[in-house]
Simulated assay, not measured.
Amino acid sequence: MTRCAVFGTGSWGTAFSMVLADAGCRVTMWGRRAALVDTLNATRENPDYLPGVTLPDTVTATADPAAAARDAEFTVLAVPAQTLRGNLERWAPLLAPGTVLVSLMKGVELGTAKRMSEVIEDVVAGEPAKEGAGAGGAGGTGGVRGRVAVLTGPNLAREIAARQPAAAVVACADEEVARRLQTACHTPYFRPYTNTDVVGCELGGAVKNVIGLAVGIADGMGLGDNAKASLITRGLAETARLGSVLGADPRTFAGLAGMGDLVATCSSPLSRNHTFGTNLGRGMTLAETIAATRQTAEGVKSCESVLDLARRHAVDMPITETVVSIVHDGKPPLVALKELMSRSAKAEGH
């Protein structure tokens, strides 16, 4: 059996653990709360995030990161994006030699404006290679990059935990590694495709959270389908503009990691970012909305880092700017909408 470690016991980490187990892997989940870990092992259920869903027998949990990481062929990282660097700095010395590092996170790091795969490379490349790791170990950025993979797409955790059909993209610079991960998570209900465009896949996942907030705000304000369709379409254009400057393949944004993930996030009540935005659009303050949200809505923090990344590369992203002005600057949504709509007219391709 392929051994997998999943760091994170939130809804997506738990759901993806099920996918791996259903594909024939043996999975050890790491959780920071010992009480939840004990509950997972005793009841085969994660009551905090996926109540009523029974975990396969080949999924176990531990609060010991070394035990989770031991002998794992794939190490899956499913923690909030802004906590990745600090967590991984503690876990990196414990990782199995040559393990493939799989990011489930969809965000951009505050301060550095780095994608999650870049954060992983930063941390792991700084660790001395373990004995026996060889050229594929953590001895250099090139070696690390070839074993950092990203899994993304329209993957709402609750639906996947119910084993409803879904597709995803497995992206890695090393195509053979992507195919290995594809095999490890391919089930009758979960269909992964491979891609070597890590940049495009990560940007699609990060920016769609920001656009999801925008569409949620529009819903909360009671705006119509025309407005929401416009936000989705122009939001995708913003993503593609940034991707073009960063070297992404334009075709990625027409696929599951781009349009597919964007549509799911902007249209589903299961989307945390959409729900967060809806509450803001209804007039709740940021503090009130945070208090009403149990799980992390990655776009809330990543909207600032996405905008930072865009400005570093002189890319215009007006919807992202509008979301930042509402979420972090306290601008009333109606005022922000009027400013967005009054921007100078231009050709659609710009």
Rank of each mutant, 00 (worst) to 15 (best):
G8M: 07
P93H: 15
T60I: 06
G330S: 12
A218S: 15
T233C: 01
A69P: 02
V53C: 11
T293H: 12
L340Q: 09
K208F: 00
R44E: 02
N273K: 04
P188C: 12
Q295R: 13
S305K: 06
V210T: 06
P80N: 12
G205E: 03
P97K: 05
A206T: 04
V210L: 02
L40E: 05
G277D: 06
S267I: 00
T2L: 12
G255W: 09
A248D: 03
T252C: 10
P128L: 15
V53G: 10
E109V: 01
T285Q: 10
G107R: 10
M1I: 12
F74K: 01
G216S: 07
W12L: 15
E127Q: 15
L20Y: 11
P332L: 10
A42P: 04
V306M: 04
A218W: 06
L307K: 10
R147A: 15
V6E: 00
E159W: 12
H274N: 14
A218H: 09
C185R: 04
V306W: 00
G255F: 02
A69E: 02
M116Y: 08
L88E: 13
D308S: 10
N46V: 10
A214F: 03
A345I: 14
A292P: 09
E131V: 15
A310P: 03
A125I: 05
V79W: 07
A214H: 11
G31Y: 13
A78C: 06
L340R: 09
R234H: 00
D219W: 02
T322N: 01
A67E: 14
V6G: 02
P333A: 08
S244C: 04
C201V: 13
T252Y: 07
R32P: 01
G247Y: 03
P332Y: 08
S17P: 09
V215P: 00
S17W: 11
R241G: 14
A184N: 12
T252L: 09
A21V: 01
T275R: 12
E348V: 09
V323K: 00
L286N: 08
L94K: 11
